[in-house]
Structure formats: C-alpha cells, structure tokens
Amino acid sequence: MHMGREYYYGSKIRQVVCLIFGIFVAALLTGSCVERGIERVEAKMEHTQKTLAKEVLRFHVLANSDSEEDQAVKMKVRDAVLVYMEESMGQELGDEPDAEETKEWVRSHLHELEDVADQTVADEGYSYQSRAEVEVSYFPDKQYGDVFFPQGEYEALKIRLGDARGHNWWCVLYPSLCFTDTACTVVSDEGKQGLKEVLTAEEYEMVTATSDFKIKWFFFGDGAKEE
C-alpha cells in the first residue's frame, strides 16, 4: 500500500510538472509569436511610411510663441496661405497636379507665400516676419481624420513666424488633407482617392483601418502567412 501511494503521488507530481512545463513552453511560444507579429507590423508600417514620404508634401506652420495672440495669428496665416495656394496653384497647374508638380510649384513660390504670411501678420497688428522653406523633417505619428500617418521623415513646406518658438500646426498639402478647422474629423473622398493612387491596397488599408482591424488583419490575414 505504501509503495502504491508513493507511486500515485509521484505520478501526480509528474503530471503537474508536465502541465507547468507545457504552460511555460506555450507562454514562450505565444510570446515569440506576438513579438514576431509586432516586428512584422512595424516593418510593414515603416515601408508604408517610406512610400508615403515620396508621394506627399506636408504643411507646417510654427507660431512666434505660445501666447494666445501668436497662436491665433498662426491660424490666420494657415488659412491665408491655404486659400492663396488653392487659387494660384489651380490657375497654374489645373485641378489635378501630381506630387512633383505640387512640390516644384511650392519651391518656386516661397517668396509669394512669405508675402501672404507677412501681410496676414501685419493685418493682425504685428511686425515679425515669416520664413518659408521646403525641407525634410521628422514628424511623429499623426491622425488626419480617419487617416493615420506613421512617424518618420517627410518633405514639408515650413512657414516659421517670428521666433518660431510656439506650438506648431501641420497637415498634408498633397494629396489634399488640410483642414481649415481644428476638429480634423473627416478626410474628403478626394483626399482618400489621392492616397489610393500612390499606395498599394495593403498600404492604404493599413493607414485607414482602425487599430483593432490592423491587428486582426495581421494575425488572420495575409500578413500571418508570410515567412
């Protein structure tokens, strides 16, 4: 009886040890799968960012300071520059310029854009000047309505007002995703169509789908099948 009891308890202990070991191995495998999944998503998003960076032009306005007055001037400049660009670019390039045409137009009209900004600042009763440049800058993750732009370096039209030490504002000039309000809740169909034309279907899905859908798409869609 004594030996039988020892065998019984020894068997139970081995089962428990095996169960714990199995759970441990499963946890390791699951953790490894999740880590690989995250790495794949990050790699795909990085590739999408590089594609976007070649095809978009962002717009960046830096306020003179964080005072309420300077921040208000920044938004006035934003509105005036967008209106000027829409009218002038439309007259010179037509309704559907591509990315390179848009960038070239902006580079060749920097002085005019500065004039628009300076006049707006003067109309608001201030004397500081603006500086307009096209340069490559790092941007953090940004949500434009229901479109997501991953962090990375992008070419941008930058207008610095005065000391340019205040909070900034930005949008995407091409394709047109700029808003003239602060809500930024809806991207126009025209803007989305512009994105569709420069991204693959998979990339477009990644920047327009919700986070939950992206995760599900990776683990259960085509992304899960890749090696």
Rank of each mutant, 00 (worst) to 15 (best):
S130I: 09
R131M: 10
A132R: 06
A132N: 05
E135Q: 13
V136N: 11
V136K: 11
S137R: 15
Y138N: 06
F139N: 00
K142S: 10
K142H: 11
Q143E: 10
Q143A: 09
G145F: 04
G145Q: 04
F149C: 00
P150S: 05
Q151T: 11
Q151Y: 05
Q151I: 07
G152T: 10
G152A: 08
G152W: 02
G152P: 01
E153M: 10
E153L: 06
Y154S: 00
E155P: 07
A156M: 15
A156D: 06
L157C: 04
L157H: 04
K158A: 15
K158Q: 13
K158S: 15
R160G: 12
L161P: 10
L161S: 04
L161G: 05
D163V: 07
A164T: 09
R165L: 11
G166Q: 06
N168K: 13
W169G: 06
W170S: 09
W170N: 10
W170K: 07
C171V: 08
V172R: 02
V172Y: 02
V172F: 00
L173R: 03
Y174N: 04
P175G: 02
S176I: 10
L177A: 00
F179H: 14
T180N: 14
A183D: 11
T185R: 13
V186R: 09
V186W: 10
V186Q: 09
G191E: 02
K192T: 11
K192F: 04
K192H: 06
Q193W: 13
Q193R: 14
Q193I: 13
G194R: 03
G194T: 08
G194P: 04
G194I: 07
L195P: 08
K196W: 03
V198E: 00
V198N: 00
L199I: 03
T200D: 03
T200C: 00
A201I: 05
A201F: 03
A201S: 08
E203D: 05
E203F: 03
E203W: 02
Y204F: 13
M206R: 05
T208R: 01
A209G: 11
T210V: 09
S211W: 14
D212W: 15
D212S: 15
D212Y: 14
K214W: 12
K214R: 15
